[in-house]
Design a protein around this nucleic acid. Structure first.
Lengths: 397, 397
DNA sequence: CGCCTTTAGTTCGTTCTTGGGACTAAGTAA
DNA sequence: TTACTTAGTCCCAAGAACGAACTAAAGGCG
């Protein structure tokens, strides 16, 4: 429920122009046709965007007849954002260009006992050389996140933390997000799809759901935590409950199953290595996981009905081995005809997906704002909410 | 990605004014404060809305000091829409005022073998006396719906139907929707909540999910079909597969369980009646269903993380009996602290919820359009899509 | 070579809508 | 009666888009 004034409509139209240009270079005439705006309006807005350094003129078109047009494109590096992943095994930090290109990335492990404070302080030291410049820093972690609070991260062993004081030390706007949701956003940012599910399958299992181009969050940020759907199993989960789906579908079970079959690998990496070499037991265990996964996908399809599923997390490395049994199992268990051929693919950004998604939080916002980013006074430590729309909402719906 | 022009901002501001007035009468000054619009702009827009007959002036306020204001409210009956439910047991047709009041409702059973053609034709005959007038007719049914196609309705025994030709006969805009999704919309229309799940529990089990005030539909309209989530059971479902959750959580199982305990009732109604009289076996069976339901709610909470759950369908009649065991079971199985006290309530519109939701499809649209409803030429039989926004979308996100 | 046609892009005047200040209206308090 | 406060109207300036007229730059054709 946004209030309309003369600035707002300019913002809407800038947004439309930028959105179309994300798909590739276009002339002013193209933009006029695509947006429905008058040529004069496009001309004015484009001039403005050129002046701000957001756009650049490029080559000329050579149409069969008529005057050639000037192609416009988003100027590389005009804006970028930082994204970080605080994962179970290590930390990733990267910079993402507003066109979706990873400018640089940095990864490091961490001491097992490092708490949120230590890890965020380390992150702060790493980003200091890069500010000012980025639009913001999006931090992702495998847990349930609401605003600046982390409610629960079983696989990190963290629970009920208010990170706002720590984030306030960062000299740029920050945002916190769940890793699966951020990963899903990275795909949306790149492909612009309306309905998809991003499966993060490692030790844990989480799903980032996108519906009508929006990330599903829920009232407490727990939407998509299907790893904690209670099934019939009797194993104890890291969350303390019994029978969570991630004790059946997670990669932990893969290793267990492999060893139950008589396999020798002690850790997951060894198993993956053996699978690459074609060891039968390893392949059998993975095949079984594929079947379980296919059935899970059929369930995922009735829960969220995504148009496409992206597989990320450690399991993405197994994708070639998993794919066939997974598809067969999905076909056998699908509810709708349409689900039988549900596209399932590995992630475009690979293991960088969560961090890319973190950065996307700000880039998406930037595009939504039509590039009218408030270079804000950042009074309260540059909190993410302050760069939000200046909406004046009415009561719901 | 809407194009902005001078009309668009007027529409946005009309929408904001109407949205605020849905909460109750307000003066022009109130509206100015709430929307952030200048007093003069509010005055002009309100005059316009009064002229169109959408608003009415009412009583005066008596503030402690200063000139009294004139209260404005939505004029009763200024707009309304029709909603219908084609259910397993019968049909409901009703008219819903734009303020959310049911103007009239009509219900009838149907011959078991009646197909979609017969039932829609009957519906057509019933609505004819009421057109023109209503904004549109929203038809709901227990099945997977995409636009004008019904992909699958196991409990009606219908599959893969294109209803567009039949709907084209209706002399007003029509829309098709799944019953659970429509029911969820009815709650949103009434309460304006951002995150909720509407549980339709009768023979089948379906969930209508609302996230950020939008109904979750998915690529094929199957989002929320948790009744067809595959569990560990071995019963055959109406959809033809084995182990669907609705064979464990549906009301069909309640009767079976009751009879397995030694109960005598032949049909569900008899069981309900016995429960009302306090028969032990009936209460025990219902208690068990409550426990199963509580566990299911814990799973629902990790899947969609609603802020509130509404129970509808036949099970709503059992709500008082189900509530206690359900809550205990939910508390025992909840993933997050927040989920332990998840509000669970029966539906406000009761068994009329699906039909009310059908009508809401048009009323919600009307409000979104700021009351600038295109009295369209209705060339192609008044299809719902034609009353949609005149968006000119850019590529995603 | 010059003219016509076609498409790209600019300039300028009109229209629509908001914002803001001045003003009127209608009440309470002293 | 006067001062003060709040509600609501009136009028003008500002911002943005639209549309028409115009210029720019190509190819086709006689």
């Amino acid at each position: 429920m946004r209030k309309g004034d003369t600035q707002e409509i300019r913002r809407l139209n800038r947004r439309a122009i930028l959105a179309h240009l994300r798909g590739g270079p276009l002339t002013r005439a193209d933009l006029s046709r695509l947006t429905g705006l008058a040529k004069s309006a496009v001309s004015r807005l484009v001039d403005e965007l050129l002046q701000e350094g957001l756009l650049e003129e490029g080559a000329f078109t050579s149409p069969p007849v008529g005057r050639p047009g000037t192609l416009l494109h988003l100027r590389p590096g005009a804006r970028f954002a930082l994204g970080a992943e605080l994962g179970v095994e290590g930390t990733v930090l990267l910079a993402l260009d507003w066109r979706g290109e990873v400018l640089w990335a940095k990864e490091w492990g961490h001491l097992r006992e490092a708490g949120p404070k230590e890890r965020l302080e380390k992150l702060l030291r790493e980003i200091l050389p890069h500010v000012p410049g980025p639009l913001g820093l999006g931090i992702t972690l495998p847990g349930v996140v609401v605003e600046d609070r982390l409610l629960l991260a079983p696989n990190l062993g963290w629970r009920n933390l208010n990170l706002r004081p720590l984030l306030a030390d960062f000299p740029l706007p920050t945002a916190l997000e769940n890793d699966a949701k951020a990963s899903a956003l990275s795909e949306v940012f790149f492909h612009g799809e309306a309905n998809l599910a991003y499966l993060v399958l490692s030790t844990g299992l989480g799903v980032g759901v996108v519906s009508e181009s929006r990330v599903l969050r829920g009232a407490s940020g727990a939407a998509g935590e299907l790893g904690h759907w209670l099934g019939q199993g009797n194993k104890t989960c890291a969350c303390g409950r019994i029978g969570c789906l991630e004790t059946e579908v997670g990669l932990g079970t893969l290793l267990e199953h492999y060893r139950a079959l008589g396999g020798k690998a002690e850790v997951l990496e060894a198993l993956l290595h053996l699978a690459e070499q074609g060891e039968d037991l390893a392949l059998e265990a993975i095949h079984h996981l594929g079947e379980v996964l296919g059935r899970f996908l059929a369930n995922l399809a009735v829960a969220y009905d995504p148009g496409r599923v992206v597989v990320g997390g450690k399991a993405a490395e197994l994708f070639t081995h998993l794919e066939h049994p997974m598809r067969q199992s999905l076909e056998a268990h699908a509810f709708l005809e349409a689900h039988r051929s549900l596209p399932v693919q590995p992630s475009v950004y690979g293991h960088l997906a969560p961090a890319v998604g973190g950065a996307s939080l700000f880039l998406v916002k930037f595009f939504e704002l039509g590039g009218l980013w408030a270079e804000s006074p950042r009074r309260n430590g540059g909190r993410y909410e302050e760069v939000a729309f200046s909406d004046r909402r009415g009561p719901g719906v």
